[in-house]
Design a protein around this nucleic acid. Structure first.
Lengths: 231, 231
DNA sequence: AGAGCGCACTTTGGATGTAATTTTTTTATT
DNA sequence: AATAAAAAAATTACATCCAAAGTGCGCTCT
């Protein structure tokens, strides 16, 4: 293996958060993580620094590092940002539809529809089943395809980060049938507007979809246990 | 001193880049920085990790860390992002003008005008004189005031980062008299539109100002020495 | 018995040491 | 003299070690 240990530690911690082994507010002990990986504390500390600057962890100087607790307001802000960024990307794509870009969007859309069909026939037993996760991924995939097509690398990164933050949240993304249905039709509308070259409509559709999603997420959120400090 | 050493190291390196002691492509040696600060290498490394994840440095394993080289495209993307984010913030502020928010904007605007007057009388001898730096800061201050007034913390952070990236670039921000003048009038227009509650106009003014600034910056940029690897 | 003080333990922050890899210098050969 | 190989020097990545701050437990004193 040539990858640096700090990278492994970084991935390891992220994975633990993603798998809910570490949840919002949990304390991370350097030694424990180091032992889990069979390494020393040095690379772990470097990973922690990175994760802090990414806003995933929260570091209290002589007290420890914790998984950051995100309150309603922050999550609200993120969704608004998504609306601003993805809305703008959608508008841009609709004004200057490049062949290759459109291809990616269409492919992502098709993939999503396939998955939706599968869900419709098989049903969706568990909210955190692999199928649900796959659905989440393909939904985000469609959005990313649009942002990528807009051709702004920096924006791609930003939106990716926003998506990741969402995925870390305690799964409020209930992919109930009706939601799958609605997302499909709305994505269809967005795609159509892009194809027809209707920037204003395309943006509006994208923004309204995200605003709706925000509502769903926020309403499914347990009330914020406000622990004061490290939020 | 209660602030952690890694924090000092972080600030130290940032300052060195800002002051052009370290320019794009420079290599950073842990030991050297550690000695400069009279500390050991550990906190320096942690600072380097953070700076890498912020996109300011570039880290090649086993080879060293370098100040990231940004090409035309990236800088183009950043300015576009600023236009998207700050444009949207401006529109939002213009639709829902809060008293306290407006106050901050007006204050920032006044401060900028004062500085402009000073520059007009005193002249601007050097492009990287303290006065020029102050001007740059106050210009960005106006923009930040608007973004803050929009009330999205996450957006504030993002835009701050974008501003910082600009400040790190090799000073193309020639604050010539005519530019100062133009910025003042355009900021005035933006402020007026916000006051009058004209969201669409406010956004348009903001976007056009940023697009103009982008042109200026890009035209004053030396052609990209493409060093291949670590860009 | 309850509150206050103090000591031991845990954990982080920082320093130093070691191994491995890259770069540079030196030397030998064509 | 130029090039290539090899050894030496430098630098990173990681491990270990020490110090200091914080936590908790128990003891004492009121």
């Amino acid at each position: 293996m040539k990858t640096p240990l700090r990278e492994k530690a970084y991935q390891h911690i992220r994975e633990k958060i993603f798998l809910r082994e570490l949840t919002a507010g949990s304390r991370l002990e350097e030694v424990k993580i180091a032992k889990e990986l069979g390494v020393s504390r040095a690379p772990v500390r470097e990973a922690l620094c990175r994760l802090e600057s990414e806003g995933i962890l929260y570091l209290v100087p002589r007290m420890g590092t914790f998984v950051k607790i995100h309150n309603r307001d922050e999550i609200c802000d993120w969704w608004e940002l998504r609306a601003v960024l993805e809305g703008s990307a959608t508008e841009k794509v609709a004004t200057q539809v490049s062949e290759s870009g459109l291809e990616g969007i269409v492919a992502a859309h098709r993939k999503m529809l396939q998955l939706a069909r599968k869900i419709r026939t098989k049903g969706l037993s568990d909210l955190r089943s692999p199928l649900a996760k796959e659905w989440e991924r393909s939904d985000l995939g469609f959005h990313m395809a649009i942002v990528r097509a807009a051709g702004n690398q920096a924006m791609v990164k930003m939106v990716e980060n926003l998506h990741i933050m969402d995925m870390f949240l305690d799964g409020p993304t209930e992919p109930i049938r009706s939601m799958v249905r609605r997302v499909c039709t709305e994505h269809g509308r967005i795609l159509r507007a892009i194809r027809k070259g209707q920037p204003v409509i395309a943006r509006k559709e994208m923004v309204s979809q995200l605003m709706w999603a925000r509502q769903v997420v926020l309403s499914h959120m347990q009330q914020p246990r406000n622990i004061g400090f490290y939020t």
